[in-house]
């Protein structure tokens, strides 16, 4: 694929997605209320939550491993 066609494709995509994203038309209601809400700030909330949950998951794993060693040293 040449550079030119790639750029064209990208532009086409932007043109196709821009109106639907601007007014979130044709999207299921629950997504408009959640992910798209308040200028899509809710997406940021979701992303930050995922990262916090990931770190928490890691803490749990670490906790379990430390507990196992403690058990063995007793």
């Amino acid at each position: 694929m040449t550079m030119r066609t790639t750029v064209r494709l990208f532009l086409l995509l932007v043109v196709l997605t821009a109106p639907s994203a601007a007014f979130a038309q044709g999207e299921p209601d629950w997504l408009v209320d959640t992910l798209y809400g308040s200028g899509k700030i809710n997406t940021v909330v979701a992303v930050v939550s995922v990262i916090l949950l990931g770190l928490a998951l890691w803490l749990f794993r670490l906790d379990r491993r430390i507990a196992r060693i403690e058990q063995r040293t007793k």
Binding site: T17, A21, L35, K40, A46, V47, V50, G54
Partner: peptide
């Protein structure tokens, strides 16, 4: 292990973001 944790967080956050921008 730790890299897979970050990959998982990257995939999940990316998926959410992609849904909100690219549909």
């Amino acid at each position: 292990h730790v890299s897979l944790l970050f990959a998982g967080m990257g995939l999940l956050t990316g998926s959410l973001w992609a849904r909100a921008t690219w549909g």
